[in-house]
Amino acid sequence: MEPTTTLAEAAPQAAAPASRFWDIFPTDSLFDQMFTMDTALKLIRVSLAIVLGLIFVGLVVAILRRMTRKRMDSRTGSLVVKVAQYLGYAFIVINALDAAQVNLSALLGAAGIAGIALGFAAQTSVSNFISGIFIVSEKTFANGDVISVDGTAGLVYSIDAISVKLRTFDNQLIRIPNETLIKSKVANITRFPVRRLNMDILITYDADIERTVAILKDIAANSQNALKNPEPVFMVTGFKDSGIGLFFGVWYATSEWFDGNNAMYIAVKKRFDAEGIEFAFPTMTIYPKPVAIGDDATIPVRQPRRKKAV
């Protein structure tokens, strides 16, 4: 009986190392349940989906970058690339979840609810973003153009996803939301190569209109910046309260309009002064009535000839 006892005692001693491993990692533990062949396959599939997705998105983004660099300005190009990049990342995440056999319908349902909530919260931002897409596609203006929006004029500094930034001529940065731009009247001042200077001139009734027109045309003909073609436009705008209204339009190269504006107004003032043509301004003529004192005495009132009031 003794040997049997010995064997019986020896067996647990020989099996001791194996039992320690399974003590640490028991077969029914969570680790054992996780690291099945099925899980490993899932992991490989997910990893492949992520790696291949990243390579695919990277390729698409690189091609888009190259295409937009040639065909679009930098801001629009980066906007397009960013949108593509984020869509690509969303595609990778969905693909990876699908590879992991996660029930996407529930997730997408939850995402839909979250999306609605986010949509309400980010309504203004989304509206600005969509307006930005329309602004870019309409091509009303580009970086470097001078635009005027609701009385604010400035150089287009940047066209971004949510807003357009203007640099005003007194060097301020103005941010205008894209939604506002879509709704407002936007004037692109530098779109075309030439621009007309519109002068509204009021001359007195005793001035000779034909002579005035000849003088104005002569000033334009001798102005260095004024264009010979298109020829200056002239129009009598009517008999106004204070004088005869004239319209005189002179064309300039857009880049020289500012200098031309100043030079033209100065030249017209100097020349009118030299030629004796008077600018009209609002005047008021007062005819006083003699005031009677007593029965037959009348005090004559000094009569001013003409009183001017602005």
Partner: peptide, 16 residues
């Protein structure tokens, strides 16, 4: 002196 060769929306400003 300068002039416009072409139309006001797409012309070229030239020496006259």
């Amino acid at each position: 002196f300068k002039t416009l060769y072409g139309t006001p929306d797409a012309g070229v400003v030239c020496r006259f």
